[in-house]
């Protein structure tokens, strides 16, 4: 269970997040939405440890995430996919996905160069292939990433996050840069991850159609504050949300 407790983030005089609190319950698909500049990405970066909030707390279970250096989060079972698919373009799909196994494996230069980890590598490569098959990119596993269409690389990014074996998956605007057809396919994939793997997903997105179709719980941010928190149905009819998205109607 991921809990944000009155998280405030200031950049000088600018308040990016203002006492933001919400809870992602295990196994749920939680969406974080809001108009441009609402603080979605800031909130996301606080959770993944890239920004340190001015005040407030972020907890995963009993663990206060703010006490840890950011690279420790993967070991706690938090997988993250990036908005701009931060992958190694020269490496193969498999190599990229295997990076997600980093915290689940051991071995530095000496162990690796002497091939002591060979058997372990094989085992993890098999698991990485399985994850790729699950996401429908099994055929591209041995291809260099640079040769693949954007829609496929998005899935590679998600596959890498899943390779961490997370119980919480953070997805940062996965639909950015995708066409309608690809977005629909992505929505199906996200739904499948939730139902088949039973992991909680925190989805940051501004594509309302995508969110409303699949989310269990929606938190709406505007100007750094939570203006609504509830099921998609509740949120859609909330007057504050309509105002934030469509502008004030008097």
């Amino acid at each position: 269970m991921l809990v944000l407790d009155r998280v405030t983030l200031r950049f000088g005089g600018l308040v990016a997040l203002d006492e933001v609190s919400f809870t992602v319950t295990p196994g749920s698909l939680h969406a974080l939405i809001g108009p441009n500049g609402a603080g979605k990405s800031s909130c996301f970066n606080v959770i993944s440890g890239l920004y340190r909030p001015t005040s407030g707390a972020v907890r995963l279970g009993e663990q206060n995430l703010l006490e840890l250096r950011p690279h420790r989060l993967a070991g706690l079972g938090i997988g993250r996919a990036f908005q701009n698919t931060a992958l190694s373009t020269h490496s193969t799909v498999l190599d990229n996905v295997l990076l997600g196994r980093h915290t689940l494996t051991r071995g530095g230069f000496i162990a690796c160069s002497l091939r002591w980890t060979r058997r372990e590598e094989k085992r993890h490569a098999a698991r990485a292939r399985e994850i790729c098959d699950f996401l429908g990119i099994g055929a591209a596993v041995d291809q260099p990433l640079g040769s693949l269409p954007y829609g496929v690389t998005k899935k590679v990014d998600i596959a890498r996050a899943l390779a961490v074996e997370p119980n919480l998956l953070l997805l940062d605007e996965p639909a950015a840069g995708l066409n309608t057809e690809e977005t629909a396919e992505l929505a199906a994939t996200i739904g499948q991850i939730r139902t088949d793997l039973g992991i909680a997903i925190l989805l940051v997105e501004h594509d309302m159609d995508l969110v409303m179709g699949i989310a269990d719980q929606v938190t709406v941010l505007d100007f750094g504050r939570v203006i609504a928190d509830g099921t998609p149905g509740d949120v859609q009819t909330d007057p504050d949300v309509i105002k934030a998205y469509l502008g004030a109607t008097t």
Partner: peptide, 14 residues
């Protein structure tokens, strides 16, 4: 290679 290509992604992967 992860450190070379994207430090934020490398960090997120542990």
């Amino acid at each position: 290679r992860a450190v070379r290509d994207n430090e934020a992604a490398a960090t997120a992967m542990g």
